[in-house]
Simulated scan of single mutants.
Amino acid sequence: MSFGVALAALAIEAGAGYPDSLFERIGHPVTWLGGLIAGLDARLNRDSESFALRRAKGAGALILLAAIALPAGVAIERLSSALPLGALLLALLSSSLIAQRSLYAHVAAVARGLSRSLDEGRREVGKIVGRDVALLDEAGVARAAIESLAENFSDGVVAPVLFLAVFGLPGALLYKAINTADSMIGHKSDRHLAFGWAAARADDLLNLIPARLAAALIVAAASAVPGGSARAALGAALADAAKHASPNAGWPEAAMAGALGLALGGPRAYHGAMLAGATLGDGRRDAGPADIFRALTIYKGALAVLWLVTLVGAAASVS
């Protein structure tokens, strides 16, 4: 168990994030993984080959990715354990896999931009979602930001913290590798339906527990927000999560919808094509910057509960 390292990593990331100057010089673990995934995709995923062969190659690429991520995590852990202040070094390195600070900053930027103009809101939300933002009105921008906040709370914060706490850096690095692969090749486009199948299924499996834990944390935090409702958050999660196309994303998104009294999800446009989507929550569709800020308040409360759970785990592991 590495709850102490996870707690320290949370604190480091909250305080410093991942410095822009460091990113400009050496990149980020996600960009390193992304470069490897892009290379495997370009080399192995050939349109001329059969669906079955492309799916097998995608599975092989995922196994190769895991075979790099796991030993790298083990090597870093062993090296850190042999150094003075090695636990602190390990926490510092692990903090790069958590996105609590950057997630807040990006979503807050949408709220501030939308407060000034619709165009600024669209521009900021376009940095964190893949849908066609030019078609979004003010309510659509606000809902997109809140949906992204809820889903990425699970994928970018809860899941890496959970894997780090339970399985150490090797587990967290493996999770991040598979999650990055899913975000890059795990969608149902003509090019990636076969090649990305293994990445999508593996990501679904790894996020089964984190997504539900994220929803529970949102429910726990909902009562701390003016007008928020823990009961409605829980009710929406139980009633609507399964309607989402993803077996996991619906949990935190539905919980957030219920907590805020909103109806999230629904139809959205990607690359000029309108895709149907389930509605999560039975509240109002109209939303604005104030609702994004309310969602961020719930997010901070959910983070506080996550920190508390991690602290309890750290205390229990040394007792």
Rank of each mutant, 00 (worst) to 15 (best):
S2Q: 14
S117D: 11
L44W: 15
L97G: 00
E49M: 12
F3T: 03
A8T: 10
S96W: 15
R101D: 05
A69H: 11
A109K: 13
L36H: 02
L92K: 02
S50W: 00
L33T: 07
A75F: 11
H106R: 15
I26N: 01
L79R: 08
D119T: 14
L93R: 06
D20N: 06
V5A: 01
G15K: 04
I98R: 00
L44P: 02
D20V: 03
Y104R: 11
T31R: 15
R46F: 01
S117W: 06
A72N: 04
A91Y: 11
G17T: 02
L22E: 05
V110Q: 06
A38E: 13
I63C: 04
G86Q: 06
L53C: 04
R55V: 03
A42R: 15
G73N: 12
R54G: 04
G17M: 08
A82R: 15
S102D: 11
V30E: 01
A52S: 10
R101I: 05
V107Q: 11
R112Y: 05
L103K: 01
V74H: 02
L85V: 05
A111W: 00
L10T: 05
T31L: 12
F51E: 12
V5R: 07
A56V: 05
A105Y: 03
A109T: 11
A72H: 02
I76P: 00
S80K: 02
L97T: 02
S2C: 09
P19D: 05
I98G: 00
L90P: 00
R101A: 07
Y104Q: 06
R116Q: 13
Y18K: 04
V110M: 07
A8M: 14
I12F: 11
G58E: 11
E49A: 10
T31A: 03
A99V: 03
L97C: 01
L65N: 03
D119E: 15
A91M: 10
L70P: 01
A66E: 12
S2I: 01
R55P: 04
S95M: 13
A91D: 10
A99R: 05
A42V: 02
I37Y: 08
Y18I: 04
P84H: 14
V107A: 08
Q100R: 11
R46C: 06
V107M: 09
L118D: 13
Q100C: 07
A82T: 10
R116W: 00
P71S: 07
V74T: 04
I26Y: 14
D20T: 06
L36F: 13
S81K: 14
E77F: 02
L10I: 08
S80H: 01
L36Q: 02
R43F: 05
R116N: 11
L7A: 14
L114C: 12
I26L: 14
L85R: 10
A67P: 03
P71K: 11
G113S: 12
R78M: 06
S50G: 08
L62K: 12
A82I: 09
I98K: 00
R55C: 09
K57N: 09
S115R: 15
L90R: 06
F3P: 03
I12P: 00
S117T: 14
A16L: 14
F23G: 00
A75S: 02
L92F: 14
G35A: 03
L53M: 09
L7S: 11
A52H: 07
A67T: 10
L103C: 05
A6E: 04
G17E: 04
L79P: 00
G27T: 09
L10D: 03
